[in-house]
Each structure stands twice: as C-alpha cells, then as structure tokens.
Nucleic acid binder design. Structure first.
Lengths: 326, 326
DNA sequence: TTGTAAGCGTTATCAT
DNA sequence: ATGATAACGCTTACAA
C-alpha cells in the first residue's frame, strides 16, 4: 500500500480511501491512485484489514461429517449461498465422525477467528466451545444437538420419519421388519431406532433382536448385515435402513432380490431408477443448511435471546420398494 | 495476550514463547502462563499471527462449480484430506459455471491471502490471475485448463473416455447413437463431443445432426432432449450422456424404456442398482483432487519449473445399460 | 480534500 | 531464560 502511495504521490491514507470507496477523494487523485494500483498489481490485504477493524474476519466455519456424502454437500451448498449473500466466505472441514478431529477443526477455525461456527457434531461434549461463545463467536448446530452447552440447533424429525417408514411397512402387511442402523451414540441413529421401535410397539409387534442390526458404520457393514438377515431361518420381509450409506449397503446385500421391501432414510440421486424404485424418508437438506445459516447470520447481526431449536419435517416418498408385500 | 502476560506476571514475549512451544522457557514459568491462558480463555489469534509472520495465512482456496454435485464434493473431500495433513484450512466456493462469480470468488480468496488456489474454471480468461501468480500465490487448475495464462493443471482424458463409450456402443451393434451434452464452451463437454464424433467417424458412421443434442445445462434439458430423440421417426438405439446430471435427465427421459442402450460419463451412487444397471465412463474423482492438492503443495513448498499438465485415465464400467443391443 | 499518528495482536530482533 | 521494541498492512481518530 505504501508502494502505491509513493507511486501515486499521495499518502497511505489516501490509498486506503480509494480502496475503500470513501467519498472524500478528488476524482483526479482517485484516478492516479487507481492507475498505481493497476500497475503495481496491488490487492488489499484483508488479513491486516480485519486485524485493525476489530476481529471481523468475514469468514464462517463449517464442520461436517464428510463433504463427499451428498447429504452434507447439499447442506454445504445451501450454507454457502446464504453466507455469500452476506459477503462471508466459508471455511469447511470434515470430522469423519471423530470427536477429536471435530475439536481440532473447531479450534483451528477459532484461531483463524471465524465469526461464526456451523457444526454437525461428532462429539458429545462441546464444553470446549464455551470460551469461544462467551467471547462472541456464534455457533449453530446442525442435524444433531450439542452436548454440555446450550446453542441454536436445527434438527430433523428423525423419530417421526422412522416411525412413518416403519408404519408404512406394517400397513403393507409386514411384521418381520429389520432395522439397519449406525452406531447408536449418534443421536440421529438413536432417534431413528426409537421411531422404528415405537411403530412396532404401537402395532403390537414384538421387537425381534435378530432383526435389529445397529453399530453399522459403513455400506460394507450394512451389506454384511443384510446378508445375515436373509440367511436367518425366518428372514425379514422388509428392511428399514437408517441412512444413505447404509441403504447402498442394504441394496448390495439384497443382491437384486426384489421380494424384500426396503425403505431408506435419506433420498438419493438415482432412487427413482432402482428396481423397484427406492422408497425413502426424504427431507429438504438444503433447507437444513439454509435455516442453519440464517440462524447464524441473525446471531451475527446481534440478535439475542435464548438458543433456539428448530425441527424440520420429513416426508415419506413411496416409489415402489417400500410397497412390496410380504 | 497482554492480559495473560499480566495475569502470569511475565512479558508479552514469554506468553508468545509458551504459545508457540519455543524451548527457552522454564517449566515453572510455562506452567504459570498456561494457567493464566486457561483461566482467561485465551486463544491465539492466527490473523494477527500471519500478519506478522509474513502473509502465511495457512489457508488454501477452492473454487468449483457446485459442491452439491457428487463429482465436485468427492474432489473437495480429497483436497481437504491433503491440505489438512499440511495444517492448511480450506476455503471453498461454488461458481455455478458463472465466470463473474468465479472471478469474484478468486478475488475474495486472494484478498484473504490464501496461500494457494485450486480452481475448476468457469471462465475462459484467467489473465486476472497474473498479478497474484507473480506475487507468489500458487494456482492449480482442475478438470479444465486455464485460459490466457499458464499454470499447473490436472485433467481427465475426456476424448478417450467418450470415444471408448461410443466404440463400446458401436461394438454392440448400434449405429444410431445419440449424444446428450452440455454447452460446448465447457472444455470437458467439447472434448467428450469430440471423442463421440471420433468414434463414429472411425467406424464410418455418418454424424446425424438430429442425434446430437448439445447446450444442455441441466437434467430437465436432457430429459426434454431425450424425449424428442425418442419421438424421431428414426429414433436412436443408444445414448451417450456427457455428465452425471445429464444422465439423470436421460434416464428420466427414457421413462423406464429399457430397450435403448445408455452410457453416462461420471459414475453415480446407485448406478449398480438401476434397471438395467448403468454403464458409465468412470474415473477416480478423489485422485483428481488429491493430485491437484499435491501439485499445489509442491509449489507452496517452493518447487519451481514449468507448469505441469497431468491427464487421468478413465475406465468404462459395463454394467448392463451399455450392453443393450439395438 | 488530504495527511499524521496510533494501534489492532502477534512475532522477530536484539538486549539483558 | 526473559524482556523491550519495532514491525507486519491496514484503519481509526484527529489534524491540517
């Protein structure tokens, strides 16, 4: 900047004025400065800028489980849209469901002085965030509630969605319905399991432990579980799978068998083209991201008040696989 | 930091030493400082830090077309993995195939002094980057080459992949093969079109303009085109679609018709479960991101030399839809 | 309209 | 082993 000032024969401050479109500059001076900027290839340093202006980094941090998962990338995209509209850049990171990694990411983001944090929590204890929150960093949790602190959060109606799927299967005549779910320490997995069990109980169907497969962390685990389910002496006539990855595994485990009903939680890109077309519990992932970003932006805008909790509804999309009869 | 120093009864510099794990500090002093840090909830300010240390922001910028597209989110994830290993955070943004948006994003990233730039270019003229490159910001282009400047780039063998797909269809007896492609100003779309035409020419099949649908920007456009193709007096017996979004549209346009062969460029999540299973031109999207990040990291590490150009191979995965006979 | 001086939170340099 | 001081590139407050 001082180089530009020298080249244009003005003071530092005048260059600053030009760069920031402050009005108090003669058109002639402005032109001279702009020429110098062009020639020297000067570009304002936002790092230095935010330092002096009081910690406003104009960035927001996002920690999710895995960007490569369509569920999270849809959320990411929606958040990006909202933040961009406010001139905020987005720093992203994947935690891979590892609490340590989540914490390390959040800390790196805080050191970089992001103005706000959007987190799909992997860990259960977010006490480590308290100092940040007290110091004014806003935080909004997505998809799962925070642990050990109180903060804004936006969730899905997991219990309701899982219950609806299970009820749907029951309504189509199934009584031996298997569950394929992730580790139950993940609240979404837990809630979807509860929804499944609620529906069975309401229909007076005893919960058969043989049919409940939990702790499945990837598609391979789901595939193996489904194979085992099919090998039972009394195999299930229907399967409810708890998320998009597990649904892929379940389909693989079914190996083309179309006689077993299947409903998956999370809509998927080619769901309408599988054989039979895949019935799913769907919801608006983009809306999840959008609302989270909006809540964060409101907090950044100075909005006070108690932490809020928003729950988004799910919809059952019946395409065929969930309507197969026993 | 000065608060911490005061609380611990030491100087600013000593706190800095503790925070940076510099050896020259008595264990006793260190302990005292660390207690003060705990109590005050102090966290190092990386913004100020990078200012003094000479512009090392420890961040890298990534500009892609759309994170919500699985192709790009896979790339993003791989890049994240590489940069994380080097302590670099990733700032991401989607250009939506809009050159202005790409440029605005890149400029915002440069103002924030990212150390390096990873770009899937939307525009054709990257002259605007020259000042940044001269000043030492590294840049690597992904999936498409830069325009008007010379820089490292990692590409896919689009011509080869498209040619292989078309040859495969020809080998299965097709002579009326339709093309469903994006706007040809996008180099990947152009190259895939060239590969398609090459294969036809090599087989002595005249290019029928009725069968060549280009300029399709989304799945809806592809769906409409496929419907029109099927309504021709002499409809195609096979379709080659130029990317994952267009493939979704093509499938929709086919409306369950299984008699028309289909090969898509880009593998997809449920491709193995469609009816018939979807044949695709696949490649390692993660590898694309990984290699790009590695090239960037090498440049950041001071590696000189002429810009490099890496081309990744594609593989034809025959699952069924590409093997349907006319 | 333009310029000067101070300071944002940190690290580098040089003393002690 | 510890500290004083300047400096990073910029903006704010004030002066001319």
């Amino acid at each position: 900047m001082s180089d530009v000032a020298a080249a244009a024969g003005v003071s530092l401050k005048t260059v600053s004025r030009v760069v920031n479109y402050e009005p108090a500059v003669t058109p002639a001076t402005r032109a001279r400065v702009e020429r110098a900027i062009q020639e020297l290839g000067y570009r304002r340093n936002d790092v230095a800028r935010s330092l002096r202006r009081g910690q406003l980094s104009r960035t927001v941090g996002l920690v999710i489980e895995d960007v490569a998962n369509p569920f999270y990338s849809a959320i990411t995209r929606a958040i990006e849209e909202e933040t961009r509209a406010h001139g905020l850049l987005l720093i992203t990171g994947s935690s891979d469901e590892d609490p340590e990694r989540e914490k390390a990411l959040v800390q790196a983001l805080c050191e970089r002085r992001v103005e706000g944090l959007l987190i799909v929590p992997a860990g259960r204890d977010h006490g480590y965030l308290r100092p940040e929150l007290e110091r004014g960093t806003a935080a909004v949790f997505i998809d799962r509630p925070p642990g050990a602190i109180d903060a804004d959060v936006i969730l899905l109606d997991n219990v309701g969605g899982a219950r609806a799927a299970t009820e749907h299967l029951i309504a189509h005549g199934h009584r031996r319905i298997a569950l394929v779910a992730d580790v139950l320490t993940i609240t979404t997995a837990k809630e979807r399991t509860v929804g499944y069990e609620d529906a069975l109980a309401a229909a007076g169907i005893a919960r058969d432990p043989d049919l409940v497969c939990t702790g499945l962390q990837d598609d391979d685990a789901a595939e193996a579980s489904v194979r085992e389910l099919l090998a039972l002496s009394r195999p299930p006539t229907a399967i409810f799978s708890g998320n998009n990855r597990l649904t892929v595994g379940a389909l693989r485990g079914l190996g083309g068998r179309t006689g077993v009903a299947l409903i998956g939680f999370d809509d998927m890109e080619l769901a309408e083209f599988t054989d039979p077309p895949l019935s799913v519990v769907a919801y608006d992932a983009a809306e999840l991201g959008r609302r989270a970003a909006q809540m964060l932006l409101q907090r950044l805008g100075g909005e006070g008040g108690r932490p809020r909790r928003v729950v988004l509804e799910t919809t059952l999309i019946a395409r065929g696989s969930g309507e197969v009869r026993p």
